[in-house]
Design a protein around this nucleic acid. Structure first.
Lengths: 144, 144
DNA sequence: AATAAAAATGATAATCATTATCAATATCAA
DNA sequence: TTGATATTGATAATGATTATCATTTTTATT
């Protein structure tokens, strides 16, 4: 089956809510989709301002919340008390390995862990909505 | 091997830092150790005030941070942006099943998941310091 | 017990990330 | 082009947590 492009997802979502795909939103979405890493709002704003200096912080917050609502982005709290965002649409679920020293984030996917999570949920009669797993440690480069 | 009691752990920790086991700290620790659930600071403060109305919020914050430092407590962010605390000393590591509707927290332990986490870390040459896994969903009671 | 040095306390100001407010601007349908 | 409406950026407000500081406790020493 073919994938609906991310731009279409957002357009439809906005249309349904009588909202507009404005220029600042276009810039923010473009910057977000281009960034492969786990950026927080401040970092996203910096990159957005390289395209247009006049786009404000509040608009970045607002737009990222929209992207989460329509399923294009997911927020994670990988470091202390700061949300960061990553693309999720059309990608497989994955978990995170976080180096607490250099703040590198690696993604990984382990099907068996996934399966045991489902089993655990079933055993407790929980309907799982989402799940997060994060391993914190020191990466190879930082150990040297 | 026998277990060093939690009170001793705290005493030694404080002694080492030239700190004192004061009356407010005693009350807060007692309340924390008695509570089996995952309470946030506000909830802990309420319970502490039932023992002594004059103990302030700041002292609860400070004392809970000490308990985390000395390894008696662990903080988790199970709901949006609020830390909650649980006993960890002398207990096995466990993960959390969180009902997003009634806010119930169930603990579970899955040795195989644990093992696969370690394998994953090894594969990526990470030295794991800690790990968190949380399954969010709807519990059995809330489904009815 | 009295005292002096040091740590702890509670009240509150400060901080930080995020959200709400609002007047001015941009967008879109007619 | 116009008029209704959504959006924007600047900034005030919020809520959780931490820092500050004068006052009070605690502890060791006399």
């Amino acid at each position: 089956m073919k994938q609906i492009p991310e731009s279409k997802i957002l357009e439809d979502f906005l249309a349904e809510k009588n909202m507009r795909l404005t220029y600042p939103r276009k810039v923010i979405v473009q910057v977000f989709l281009q960034s492969m890493s786990h950026l927080d709002i401040e970092e996203l704003h910096e990159r957005v301002r390289k395209v247009d200096k006049d786009i404000g912080l509040a608009t970045v917050y607002r737009t990222m919340n929209l992207l989460v609502e329509c399923g294009l982005a997911q927020e994670n709290v990988l470091f202390q008390d700061k949300k960061c965002f990553e693309r999720v649409y059309g990608r497989d679920h994955h978990d995170h390995l976080v180096c607490t020293r250099c703040r590198t984030v690696k993604e990984f996917h382990h099907p068996m862990i996934e399966r045991f999570q489902e089993k655990t949920a079933k055993k407790h009669e929980f309907s799982i909505v989402s799940h997060r797993m994060t391993l914190f440690g020191i990466c190879r480069d930082c150990k040297e």
